[in-house]
Design a protein around this nucleic acid. Structure first.
Lengths: 115, 115
DNA sequence: TACGATGTACGACGAACACCGTACATTATC
DNA sequence: GATAATGTACGGTGTTCGTCGTACATCGTA
């Protein structure tokens, strides 16, 4: 087995609706927002939000399979980075336009009915 | 009852992830693509694609509830239009960046370099 | 009033998603 | 080898989505 093996879609296979879906979740949006600095971040690094590890793995998988991120095993960690070149090549300006608002896109979403 | 009544979210309530989700489906992407001309289109007009009316109604509802479109009853038809101003005001450049690729968001390389 | 056209509302179904806990694999260190 | 740390894989549950058929409401017209 190879639990340290990740499948990434080819750059030419990226589809717009898949990418948009990958970014249509607050948790994933926040993760990508962190990755916008161009650096590699470990899964635990992105895990700043209060969500279990297994849940984060799930979101990271969706991001990866949409072709938005690349995951690379490094030692006992996984380093995740944005596939900026690939995404930009196929959809110029898309990532920037979306992530320009990635931080503030959570205004009145607080549907959290009290507590 | 008021089957001719539609609820639209307030402009200030639009959220990025909701909009991205609304655009994360090929059928809806195609519909919005048609609406990019700024004109009002009837539901049947958008229905060019081979999908049942009820399915289209569903997609239009998602678009409407995300704040992407506005639906207005007109005679025996419904006229749908893009809420360009509202979306642009809240997320400048987002719609243009996404819809610039709305047509080619298919599969493999469609290197149509726009023109 | 009756009819046809347009589009919604409702219910149903299968598939995919979001979430989580737990177990396992991998790596580094002792 | 034993241990701890990191993160995945594997279920499981509940929800939502995408799809469709059918029934109903509305409007325009005969």
């Amino acid at each position: 087995m190879s639990p340290r093996k990740f499948l990434h879609p080819d750059a030419a296979e990226l589809t717009l609706h898949r990418i948009l879906f990958a970014l249509s979740d607050p948790t994933r949006l926040a993760a990508v927002s962190e990755l916008m600095d161009g650096a590699e971040h470990s899964s635990g690094d992105l895990l700043a939000q209060s969500v279990p590890r297994s849940t984060m793995t799930h979101h990271l998988k969706i991001l990866r399979e949409a072709g938005v991120t690349r995951t690379r095993p490094e030692g006992m960690r996984c380093l995740i980075s944005l596939r900026r070149n690939d995404v930009d090549a196929r959809f110029p300006g898309l990532l920037d336009a979306i992530m320009a608002h990635g931080r503030s896109g959570r205004s009145a979403d607080s549907r959290a009915a009290a507590s």
